[in-house]
Structures are given as C-alpha cells and as structure tokens.
Design a protein around this nucleic acid. Structure first.
Length: 475
RNA sequence: CGGGGCGUGGCGCAGUCCGGUAGCGCACCUGCUUUGGGAGCAGGGAGUCGUAGGUUCGAAUCCUAUCGCCCCGACCA
C-alpha cells in the first residue's frame, strides 16, 4: 500500500475507488459487482454495526434471522414490490443436481418471508406489536456497481415490525428514522437531512418512505437510510391478520427500515481528503496509532517501553496500535496511517522519552500537541471526543455552505452542475419531477420534515407549492 | 443495454504499427548502511503476454473467434 492517491478535486470518483483499495477497506471479488470487505473495512463496519445494534435493542427491538432463499412466488404477492424488484433479482433454478420445482430468489430484502412468518405467529391483538430486526446480506443484481455504494451483495440491517394500529406503525416509522438520524450524526459524524421521499422515489410496496440524506464532498447526495410505512399492503398480501379487542378481524400495519454497508462509503466521502481517509473516532478501527522513532537499539527499547505504557494505560478505553514494524522509517508510517484515516497519531522519539512527553497529531486538521506522558491516558479520550465533534461541525459547515435556496429554474440549472443541495418549490407532480431529472439529472432527495411550511410557486411550472423540497444530484 | 478504454511477473505500464523468442517502475526476498515526513546501495526470486484456433521457419506482435474487466450513462440502498 501507500501509493499515491488521485486528488479529489481532479477526479472524485477515481479518488473514491483508489482510496477504498489503498486504505485496504475492500477489494474486487472474482464475481463482477461483488467485493471483499477486508479486515480494516470490516472493522469499521463492525464498529458501526455494534453501535447501531445497541440503539436498535435499546429501543425495544430484538434480533432474529430469516433465510436468504425465498420462494419466487412470495416476491409476486405484492404488486408494486414485484415490479420494483423483479429487474434485480438473482434466482436459483437448480439445486442438488436437479431443476427446482419452484425457483428460489436470493433475497433482495426480506419483507415477503418475514410477513409470511408474522402471519403464522399472529392470532390476536395481544400478539402485537412484533418488533424484529435482522442483520443480513442481500442481493440486488445491479448494472453498475461501486464499492460499498452499490454492490450486488451487501450487508445491512432490516427492521420489520407489525402493529395493531396505523398510528402505532407511523410512530414506529418515525422512531426508526430518528434513530438513524442520531446514529448518522453522533456515530458517523455525518449531518443529515431528514425527510419524506416523493412517490417516485418511494420503496416498492410502501405507503410512505422516509429517509436521511447526506452530502458528499463532491456535493452529491447519498441516501443513507430509509424507514418505510408499509400500511397494510404486505399484511394483505401475506394474510397477516389478528382479532382485535372488539372481536373484529383486521390486517396488521407494518413498517420496515434499513441501513447498509453503503454507510461505509458515506463516511469515506464525507470526511476524506486528498491524503486519504479521515475516520470519526467513534467508529475508527484504530483510534490512535503510536509511531516509535529511534536510531539505536537502546533508543528503540526506551521508546517502545513508553509506547507500551501508553497502550496499557488506555487499555479498554482507546483502540490503540503500536506500529513497531522495523522495516519502515517513520515518514512512511506517517503517510500510511494518514491514508488509513487514524484520528490521532502519537509520535514518541528519544527527545520525547527524555522529556517524558509525546506528540499528538490530529489527522483531520494536522494540529500538533505536546502531551506529558503521564497525561496521555487522560487526554487521549478527550481529544478523540473533540475530534468526533469537530468532524461533524466541519461536515455540517460544508453542507450548509453548499445548500442554497433557489426560486428560478434557470438559476437552478446553472448552479446544479457544481453540486450541492437546492431548496426549491415544486408543484408536487411526478411530471415536473421527471422533467427536472431529465433536464438536470437532479432528483428530489426528500421533502424535509423540519423546514417548515412556506407558500410559494413551483420553480418550473409556477403552480402553487406549500413548502420547499431538497433537490440534488445523487449517488 | 448504449458509449469509451483495457487485458503482458503481485500492482502500474512499455513493447504490437514494421513478426526474430519479453522489458521498465513500484512491491517482494537477502545483506549492509539508515530511521523526527513516503530511505540508499548491492544481489536475488517471480511472467503458458486473457483464451481458442489460424498464417508463418518463427507470433505478445498479423488474421478469425471468444471470454473478461474498468470508466461514463440508463436502474438502484
């Protein structure tokens, strides 16, 4: 590793593909469109997953596991769902040396199996709600794959719930959405806009789709999580019914929500710079790396002794690595760990040992700080927390700067090429949305929930609009 | 599926026009000197030139077929 990296400004998409491989997050697999998530990338995902898993459990959900193979007929039971997913299904037709009686699809998402099972488990209103999450892999036969952002097999979490009433289901949908927002902002340090999708961008089979949208460093949007109010669509398709308090038999109300390994791509594209990754401390596989500097063997011994002291003192508090590889000089190690985005580098050389101090250097802004050796265990966690916050602030400032209000379609067309979020009025029709997409490649990322109402007129048709929506080019 | 590019040691490439039996950089291995911003020197290992046919005394190079990959677009978390 440690090769030169294409600068972001020169070719963002090249920068992205390069850094994913150089930082050893992932590599191409033998099957086109599939990737191998390497230990460093998987460590990042594991940290994200563990944090989110805690949040999911703390909000009353339980984990379970449903099978990857789904009878093909299941996929066809909900009309919109089939239509939405049919083009990207991978189907098993043969097994055990024979052609199967019924084809099996590799799940592209699990609504169908899960609601089939829920139907089996639900007799009475007393059996509700069902609040289940699963961590799984899913398959979608994509035409144009990209590391983490779009691969044919990806890892995710999908929450699936069943409720007695519509209100309760809607509340659940919003709860998941809010959980995602908190996760993105606190854990990933990625600011997001929370909103509702337009009909054209809605999940296949949902009544409403909510999402969180983040802005990448090239000004493009990345849908980073979705939460769907499924209404009774799947309940009806899978006969998920219960007898209510009043004796009536009713269909349950469902929600589903998910985030995927795509978030790894989001973290890369939100925080990275021309020197490589910049990882938020909360999820960084290595939060601080110690680079020992020495000439002689005695120096080496003294320096490594200090390094080990730090590692011991922060054990269980900070994920720390001592890079004691002897074949590389410090400069090489600096460059390598910068490329890998380790939030804080700790340099320890003979001078530092002599003065009972070390040098902290932050990855994201290169700030240096001399720290007394006996203060490291105390200060390091504080500094990491500060970095976490600074990364969020920086990303938010960037996004806000690239978010503008526009009222004229001409101005919109002129500026959309530079990226960014555009708050504009829209007449609410599919036609206008499609026209804008056709002419500018920009889509409505969401109808933001927190922007508030504002009377205005559609920038394209001049028809009345009650609030602004977020337009952007997206991944 | 449309457009563009490319298949040659692990990676990146030259050589292909004009056929003569494979080379460069990085990485790797060994040794010595180095070590506070990507070390230097010396020695060394490693390639059925994507695949299959054909032309030829001789093919990485010419002809035919075929497979695959990457980038840009349509689709999508």
């Amino acid at each position: 590793m440690a090769q030169k990296l294409t600068p972001m400004s020169k070719d963002f998409s090249r920068w992205y593909t390069d850094i994913v491989q150089l930082a050893e997050l992932a590599d191409h697999a033998p099957v086109k469109g599939c990737m191998v998530i390497r230990p460093y990338g998987f460590g990042l995902w594991e940290n994200m997953r563990d944090k989110l898993d805690r949040m999911i459990k703390d909000s009353g959900h339980e984990n379970a596991y449903f099978p990857m193979l789904i009878p093909e007929s299941f996929m066809k039971k909900e009309a919109e769902h089939v239509e939405g997913f049919a083009p990207e299904l991978a189907i098993v037709t043969h097994a055990g040396g024979k052609k199967l009686e019924e084809n099996l699809v590799l799940r592209p998402t699990s609504e169908t199996v899960i609601y089939h099972m829920y139907a089996k488990w639900t007799m009475s209103y007393r059996d509700l709600p069902i609040l289940i999450n699963q961590w799984a892999n899913v398959f979608r036969w994509e035409m144009r794959p990209r590391f983490f952002l779009r691969t044919m097999e990806f890892l995710w979490q999908e929450g699936h719930t069943a409720h007695r009433t519509e209100e309760e289901a809607e509340k659940e949908t919003r709860l998941a959405l809010e959980m995602y927002r908190e996760f993105a902002e606190k854990v990933l340090a990625v600011p997001v806009i929370v909103g509702e999708k337009t009909a054209s961008e809605r999940f296949a089979g949902a009544v409403r789709t909510y999402c969180i949208e983040a802005m990448m460093r090239d000004g493009k949007a990345l849908q980073s999580g979705t939460s769907h109010m499924l209404g009774q669509n799947f309940a009806k398709a899978f006969d998920l019914k219960f007898q209510d308090k009043d004796g009536e038999v009713r269909f349950a109300w469902n929600t589903s929500w998910g985030v995927s390994t795509r978030l790894v791509g989001a973290v890369v594209m939100v925080h990275g710079d021309d020197d490589g990754l910049v990882l938020p401390p909360v999820i960084a596989p290595i939060q601080a790396v110690i680079i020992p500097i020495y000439r002689s063997d005695e120096e080496r011994t003294g320096v490594l002794e200090a390094a080990n002291k730090i590692k011991e003192a922060t054990k269980g508090i900070v994920r720390i690595k001592i890079d004691d590889r002897d074949q590389y000089k410090p400069g090489r190690k600096f460059a390598e760990w910068e490329q890998k985005g380790v939030p804080i580098r700790i340099e320890i050389g003979p001078k530092d040992v002599a003065n009972s101090q070390v040098v902290f250097k932050r990855r994201h802004d290169r700030e240096k700080e001399i720290v007394p050796l006996d203060k490291v265990a105390e200060l390091l966690p504080e500094r990491l927390a500060e970095v976490q916050q600074l990364l969020f602030d920086r990303a938010k400032a960037f996004r806000d700067e690239k978010t503008m209000t526009v009222d004229s379609y001409d101005e919109f067309k002129e500026k959309i090429g530079d990226g960014g979020f555009f708050l504009a009025h829209w007449d609410g029709t599919d036609e206008t949305e499609a026209k804008i997409k056709g002419e500018t490649k920009a889509t409505i990322r969401c109808i933001p929930l927190e922007l508030g109402q504002e009377e205005g007129v559609c920038m394209v048709t001049g028809k009345p609009s009650k609030q602004r929506v977020v337009f952007a080019r997206a991944y």
